[in-house]
């Protein structure tokens, strides 16, 4: 059975979807069979990084949750972003969230069958023979987040060196501990002072007692790309790519 990896942050704007897309691409480039589910139904967006425009997807996760299609019908092959830089047998699929206003509000208004979401994850892994299923979660704590944490083999928490992030992350760590997540990691993003990165990593690790896989700087290069691609593939020699590669290796080894 493949691994379920949830990527979460307590607050928005941490770069969670960007990290998710990069980790997925790096794992696929290492020969893994990877799927990504955008469970951020209220504010989907990871499809942009894969250049998958809403006009191109007939079905989204929302359609599956309302019984309009099978989960694999909403899975799109986005391995084109790897530009052939992947071993034979690897794959990269994305299950996007709907970008139709009415469908987003319908989820908020009517809710959905949570059991379908859970069985969708399992079916996806089985039917696409995935080694890794990455779940891009909605920020904060809600039912979908708790479901994702409860069934995850790996939980990666993204945070900024910011007092609000620190407090919120403490809550998520406590929940993950209560739900006994087997492998809990953190990744610090948008750090300012490179001289302080080692000390920052140590401070966060000793505060939360959770391994920090890396510290990434607030980067103009990332901002310039502006979600117009997968950063680590566009900038293979960049120091941020090295951090993401290390994180992908640790997640794979967990």
């Amino acid at each position: 059975m493949g691994k379920i990896v949830s990527i979460h942050s307590f607050r928005g704007g941490t770069g969670k979807s960007n990290v998710t897309a990069n980790l997925a691409a790096l794992l696929a480039r290492q020969g893994k069979r990877v799927g990504i589910v955008d469970t951020d139904i209220q504010s989907p967006g990871i499809h942009v990084l894969f250049n998958l425009s809403p006009e191109r997807f007939r079905y989204a996760l929302n359609d599956y949750l309302w019984g309009k299609c099978r989960i694999e019908d909403a899975a799109y092959d986005v391995s084109g972003v790897l530009q052939g830089q992947c071993p034979r047998g690897s794959c990269l699929y994305l299950i996007p969230g709907s970008m139709r206003t009415g469908e987003i509000t319908r989820i908020l208004r009517d809710g959905y069958d949570v059991g379908l979401l859970n069985s969708g994850f399992q079916e996806l892994m089985e039917r696409l023979d995935l080694t890794h299923l990455l779940i891009d979660t909605h920020p904060g704590v809600n039912e979908e987040t708790l479901l994702s944490i409860a069934i995850s083999d790996v939980l990666l928490l993204i945070l900024r060196p910011d007092q609000q992030d620190y407090q919120g992350t403490a809550i998520t760590v406590e929940l993950a501990r209560q739900l006994e997540v087997e492998n809990l990691f953190m990744l610090i993003n948008k750090a300012i002072n490179p001289q302080d990165f080692a000390a920052l990593k140590q401070r966060v690790e000793s505060t939360y007692h959770v391994p920090v896989l890396g510290v990434m700087p607030l980067s103009g290069d990332v901002a310039i790309l502006g979600s117009g691609g997968i950063f680590s593939l566009v900038n293979p020699e960049h120091p941020i790519t090295a951090v993401l590669e290390f994180a992908a290796q640790q997640i794979d080894a967990a």
Binding site: G115, L116, S119, E143, L146, L175
Partner: peptide, 18 residues
């Protein structure tokens, strides 16, 4: 598809915590 079950019963993920 899972078996047809009543939608007003069952657990929510937050119930796991208690």
């Amino acid at each position: 598809m899972p078996p047809d079950i009543p939608t007003d019963s069952g657990f929510r993920a937050s119930d796991l915590l208690s």
